[in-house]
């Protein structure tokens, strides 16, 4: 039921936001039409952090309580986080090309996002290299916790690393020229994407729970020995 409501809500809100982005929101003066990708880019990175933060809490929860549901939620949140992180990187590159005339620049935020992406791809690889079980959940939780805790340190170090090489003039002016319709639009699309996140998460968690239950039933079928 909740699933359905979330699904309908995300479809309607994304359609609405799609309409508003192109027919209501003004075209930003300095960057032009390409600025509209921001309505995907910015919510994506926020939701990446949200998903990975939930995964972090669930990882702690798993090690503490050892209840499988924490593991399921952590896994699904990392998967979603990695997807949104990938969207952030791709939309970031598309945006970067007309704005800074390059697809990739070693900007602090971009670099941190890339490292974040790599850490949690590592998390998913670790899970792939292990068989399902309590140990898989435990090890993944360990990586989920240290991976998330490392993010502030990575961001700090990458920021210092860049600022000493070249002053980031482009980035400093970017943020303070945001006018009200743009901000409203951004918050609206964030809301729409949050619905989408909640919908995908609830579907994915349901699917994972069903799949595990099914696998357990198969594995524990009464067998005829010899």
């Amino acid at each position: 039921m909740l699933n359905k409501i979330l699904g309908i809500a995300s479809i309607i809100s994304i359609a609405l936001v799609g309409y508003l982005v192109f027919f209501w929101a003004p075209i930003e003066s300095s960057m032009g039409i390409v600025q509209k990708i921001m309505y995907i880019h910015v919510p994506s990175i926020w939701l990446t952090f949200l998903a990975l933060f939930i995964a972090f809490l669930c990882s702690i929860g798993y090690l503490w309580k050892r209840a499988e549901i924490y593991d399921v939620v952590a896994l699904c949140m990392v998967e979603i986080g990695v997807i949104f992180c990938g969207i952030t990187l791709i939309t970031g590159s598309i945006w970067a090309k007309p704005t800074w005339n390059t697809y990739w620049t070693w900007d602090a935020r971009l670099t941190t996002t890339l490292i974040l992406f790599l850490i949690f791809v590592g998390y998913l690889l670790l899970r792939k290299f292990m068989d399902y079980g309590e140990q898989q959940a435990r090890f993944a939780a360990v990586v989920g916790i240290i991976g998330f805790l490392d993010v502030p340190l990575i961001h700090q170090s990458v920021t210092w690393w860049r600022t000493l090489h070249q002053p980031s003039t482009v980035f400093s002016t970017k943020k303070n020229v945001i006018d009200t319709p743009l901000l409203v639009m951004l918050l609206l699309s964030l809301l729409a994407f949050s619905f989408l996140l909640a919908f995908i998460a609830s579907k994915r968690i349901e699917l994972e729970l069903k799949s595990r239950k099914f696998q357990k039933q198969i594995a524990n079928l009464p067998q005829d020995h010899h």
């Binding site: 490292i115 790599l118 850490i119 590592g122 670790l126 990586v143 240290i146 991976g147 490392d150 340190l153 990575i154 700090q156 170090s157 990458v158």
Partner: peptide, 8 residues
């Protein structure tokens, strides 16, 4: 797993 974490 280790190298991205060690970047700082």
């Amino acid at each position: 797993l280790l190298f991205p974490l060690l970047i700082p």
